[in-house]
Design a protein around this nucleic acid. Structure first.
Lengths: 217, 217
DNA sequence: AAATTGTGGTGAACAGTGTTTACTTTTTGA
DNA sequence: TCAAAAAGTAAACACTGTTCACCACAATTT
């Protein structure tokens, strides 16, 4: 609320913060959270390890920012497709395909975003303010699309959009994780010739959408 | 090929190996691979840390055995359901539900089994002998079921069972991972009242199966 | 029976990790 | 100019997986 919206000190600080994040991003994308060590990171930017802690409370917090940035990228891309004015069927399929595409381009980011926090061990409050997180917004896009499908009569009338969105999301998530963790997927055996990955993604997307459709033979 | 199929020394060795695995299993189930440290494990069984390495080449190898045992349990359960003589629709749904059920009962095991190895970074030979692994056998059960659905006319005739099995598997995997990583799933916000978990699993299963069905309106 | 080989077990160390603390230097603001 | 705050650091703490040299005891071989 002062005269200058950001003091030189602040700008300097943000610049260094950004440099740290940028260096972290590079190695995280290639080697994941385990490959990213504070000491290596500090060396990359010519600082002492302890210096990092003047900018980030912990390694987890640092990595969380990388994950959030990634989800912003993911959301942007899916949103762009969802806002197109192409036919519904095509648009829905492209949203799924884009989600999987972007996610698998940065496997460590995607996997860490879901894998990261502590596993299910009793009812925790878990995700505070999910609706406002990037993840939450991505979910909202999905839900809106399903509502459109229901209201235009393409999908069954009795579908609960929130439920269906979660189911759809889970299926997308599953395919993404499969690709992320099994390098040859959809091939399971290296010497297997199956559909190309892209084609399989479309197949999977169609499969999911078909599950929602009203079957007016 | 000697007279006694297992010498006293061998039996003794296997016994200790089992004790180590048993102790490891307990803490792994509660805290995952990160919570399981060789030193803690050694203390639990009153040995020195180095002693563990007389029985296991590395921590990874030890954990791999835990994961393999878990997948054996998972496979057994799904197989038991698949071999029932209940109506197809019910049987298929129960297989999916059981898979998710067993998996989410040991979240660390399930997540680690997929998350464990190195992420997709180029075409590696990846899964040597997938067909014979427990994971591979679980997949085979799925595929057989789909083939039954196709041959009895419940599913569309043009379905490639291998492809469909992978797609179905991916969807099951996705739901499982969601539940594993989001304690409140299918609720996203803690103060959200949705379908119970069990009901959601069935909803998801129906959704997947509907995607395969022939829609003879 | 004696000598040798192999196995089970250990303490100590190596090379890492995230993080904290005490301390110094630099920058900032009045 | 001078005190206060911020930036940066070396060293240590408490861990981690893993290896190495060594010891004791059991099993085999001579």
């Amino acid at each position: 609320m002062t005269a200058s919206v950001s003091s030189p000190a602040e700008r300097r600080r943000n610049k260094i913060r950004a440099r740290i994040l940028s260096a972290a991003e590079r190695v995280f994308a290639r080697e994941g959270a385990d490959g990213l060590s504070i000491r290596r990171l500090a060396e990359n930017i010519d600082y002492s390890p302890a210096a990092i802690y003047k900018y980030f409370k912990s390694k987890d917090e640092l990595v969380d920012e990388l994950k959030e940035s990634f989800f912003e990228l993911l959301l942007e891309n899916v949103h762009r497709i969802a806002d197109r004015s192409t036919p519904f069927a095509e648009r829905a399929r492209d949203c799924v395909a884009t989600y999987v595409q972007i996610a698998t381009e940065k496997p460590y980011h995607y996997a860490a975003a879901f894998t990261g926090q502590a596993l299910s061990s009793g009812p925790v409050d878990s995700e505070p303010g999910f609706e406002n997180s990037k993840k939450g917004q991505a979910f909202y896009v999905l839900r809106s699309m399903i509502e459109e499908g229901v209201s235009t009569g393409i999908f069954r009338k009795d579908i609960d959009s929130a439920l269906a969105a979660k189911s759809l999301w889970a299926s997308m998530h599953g395919l993404t994780m499969m690709i992320v963790h099994i390098p040859t997927f959809p091939a399971l055996n290296p010497a297997q010739n199956t559909l190309s990955r892209q084609d399989f993604i479309l197949f999977h997307a169609d499969q999911m959408i078909r599950g929602l459709e009203a079957n007016d033979g």
